[in-house]
């Protein structure tokens, strides 16, 4: 659901002493938009940057199930419930596609899961905000998944083959997520005054966190240049954010809702919307784990993992028993 590298504090250093002919050949291949596959030679920094980015992306998909999972039992109709269940299941699937892509780079699933549960690994800040009303489920699909699509569409052409292929699959499914969210917003917007207020309140709370999903501004993203050269990233954070604003404002107008930004104006010369400053101190606080629901999310995740331990153990025992029978 989310891809921008969150942890900017430790850029991966370029390794010295890598054979120059291999480095040059690698650079030439990515510059020519060729795909790099798991067994191809790649610089260590490329491998490490990708493992970090893909695993953070996977963790975000997994944690992304929690804010929405909250509402499965409280969906307003059986159809909405079935849809939300399918959407949350997709997020779990996306996490699995991405973990597999990271594993092709030599990361183990076990280590990645441990890193998430111990709080060492980052995931998208957006999931540390609470889902207070049913309208939040609409706003998440429309805005959060909408922002994710903006991020993920260019990643279908990212230079690492397994990541690009996972993104193709994810993007196909993500479009349903955004539309079901918008459909919830539409129903509320056409509803009673109280329902319209609920929709507006959800937009007010999710708008700025959604803009933050694209990551820090370009001048505060030290890794952007190298990631662009290596085609790990195809467009900068600010470019994608602008695209998102331009696409979303007319959709809000259609709902009859207003974007909570007094500085938002159409800029005729740029052919794009100007928008207000983002409160980055909030973003960095949430990245550091000070988000409202940070503890709750990880606690719920660990509980699900621990509660499922007996199933994993039973599956192992069953396999061991079958093996023993085959030997005998």
């Amino acid at each position: 659901m989310y891809t921008t590298e969150l942890d900017k504090s430790r850029p991966v250093d370029l390794q010295t002493g890598e054979p120059k002919d291999l480095v040059d050949a690698f650079e030439a291949r990515v510059a020519a938009d060729e795909f790099i596959e798991p067994k191809d030679w790649m610089p260590e920094a490329y491998r490490k940057t990708l493992i970090r980015q893909i695993s953070q992306h996977a963790h975000s998909e997994i944690i992304g199930m929690y804010p929405e999972g909250n509402w499965i039992t409280r969906a307003p109709s059986l159809q909405r419930k079935a849809i939300l269940l399918a959407k949350v299941q997709d997020e779990g699937g996306h996490g699995l596609y991405l973990y597999c892509a990271a594993e092709t780079l030599g990361a183990s699933r076990d280590e990645m899961v441990d890193a998430l549960h111990s709080g060492k690994a980052k995931y998208s800040t957006i999931f540390n905000y609470p889902t207070l009303t049913w309208a939040d489920i609409g706003a998440i699909g429309w805005l959060v998944d909408g922002a994710a699509i903006m991020n993920q569409v260019p990643l279908q052409r990212t230079s690492y083959g397994p990541y690009a292929r996972a993104m193709v699959r994810v993007c196909k499914e993500e479009s349903f997520h955004q539309r079901q969210g918008y459909s919830i917003m539409l129903a509320l917007a056409e509803g009673t005054d109280a329902q319209r207020r609920m929709a507006q309140d959800a937009l007010n709370r999710w708008w700025w966190p959604s803009l933050m999903m694209f990551g820090p501004p370009d001048d505060a993203s030290p890794n952007t240049e190298r990631s662009m050269r290596w085609r790990i990233k195809r467009e900068t954070n600010d470019e994608l954010r602008q695209k998102f604003v331009d696409a979303t404002v007319p959709q809000a107008e259609l709902l009859g809702l207003s974007i909570p930004d007094p500085d938002l104006t159409w800029n005729e010369t740029r052919g794009a919307y100007d928008f207000g400053d983002i409160d980055w101190s909030e973003f960095y606080a949430v990245v550091k784990g000070e988000g409202m629901c940070a503890k709750e999310r990880i606690t719920a995740r660990k509980k699900a993992w621990d509660d499922g331990a007996w199933v994993r153990e039973a599956a192992d025992a069953y396999e061991a028993k079958k093996q023993a029978r085959n030997v005998a």
């Binding site: 594993e103 076990d110 079958k322």
Partner: peptide
């Protein structure tokens, strides 16, 4: 030592008459 289950490559036939095609991978004990 990783506690991971073994990794399996998954091939899917989209419909009758087509080849199975690589789709991705999963971990499973058997």
């Amino acid at each position: 030592m990783s506690k991971d289950w073994p990794l399996w490559e998954v091939f899917i036939r989209a419909k009758g008459g087509l080849d199975h095609k690589h789709a991705g991978s999963v971990h499973a004990p058997d």
